[in-house]
């Protein structure tokens, strides 16, 4: 399996001519994208460009209206079984963490493994502690999310996703709601995850993160993928006027 992926890269996520409208508003216009297994993709672009919508289509939090999305070899359509199967393999981290406030950190991490993967509590807790260890907050396991800082909550959210042992991780602006000093701890966790070989799609404006770990950077504007390139090329020689303008705006200060 491992050698096979090295010799012939497997496609983890594939989008073909994906279109989506919110009423009259055309959010995604003929989006085409192939993500190989183990690839780390950073998606950036101005707000309203459709980057969040695109990754939310990958696990069906949003429904695409035309085109084809294939995740992990399964086509995403109205078949509930396919959606269930895809959601088990795709983890997601949100801007506002979305931890379950009525459950402890440990229970947050065990809920889905127990109810979806039907894993015994003891085993689920052991796995959860392993991942909490990895995001460096095992000692907070018995606390409730409301008792943690933003950075800690986001790290718990990452651990919660990992407990389902996903093959693909989606990050939707994971550091945008954090204070500057907490951004680093979350980015460090993400970098570590990237180094472990996880397939990642990250919507983020952290250009430092993009330069460190991304295999390629996607720039989106007005529902279209304008440019896709290696971080080096993208930051140093942006091809399009729109990307140049965007980069000058976010790197200018």
């Amino acid at each position: 399996m491992e050698t096979a992926t090295q010799t012939k890269p497997e496609i983890a996520v594939s989008l073909r001519d994906v279109n989506k409208w919110y009423g009259e508003f055309h959010v995604l216009k003929n989006v085409n994208l192939d993500v190989e297994r183990g690839q780390r993709i950073v998606i950036c672009g101005p707000s309203g460009s459709g980057k969040s919508t695109m990754i939310r289509c990958i696990n069906r939090l949003e429904e695409h209206q035309a085109g084809q999305i294939i995740v992990d070899g399964i086509e995403l359509n109205n078949d509930l079984k396919n959606i269930d199967q895809i959601r088990r393999e795709v983890g997601m981290v949100f801007q506002h963490f979305n931890l379950f406030p009525h459950l402890t950190v440990l229970e947050n991490c065990c809920l889905a493994p127990m109810w979806v993967r039907k894993i015994p509590r003891k085993e689920a807790e052991a796995t959860a502690m392993e991942y909490l260890e990895r995001v460096k907050i095992p000692h907070q396991a018995k606390k409730f999310p409301g008792q943690l800082s933003g950075g800690q909550q986001q790290r718990v959210a990452i651990a919660r996703s990992l407990c389902m042992k996903p093959r693909i991780m989606l990050f939707d602006e994971p550091t945008s709601a954090l204070d500057p000093e907490m951004i680093k701890e979350v980015l460090d966790t993400m970098i570590e995850l990237a180094e472990s070989g996880m397939t990642m799609l990250c919507v983020t404006h952290e250009m430092g993160f993009a330069k460190t770990v991304a295999d390629s950077v996607i720039f989106m504007d007005a529902g279209q993928i304008i440019e896709m390139n290696t971080p080096d090329e993208f930051f140093n020689h942006p091809q399009h006027e729109r990307s140049k303008l965007f980069l000058s705006q976010i790197l200018g200060h």
Binding site: N59, R60, L61, D84, R87, R88, V90, G91, M92, F94, H96, N98, L99, F100, L111, A112, W115, V116, A157, R160, S161, M164, L170
Partner: peptide
């Protein structure tokens, strides 16, 4: 966000 997080974890 709560139901979205639950859905993304595979909960029906």
């Amino acid at each position: 966000g709560q139901s979205e997080a639950a859905a993304s974890l595979g909960l029906r």
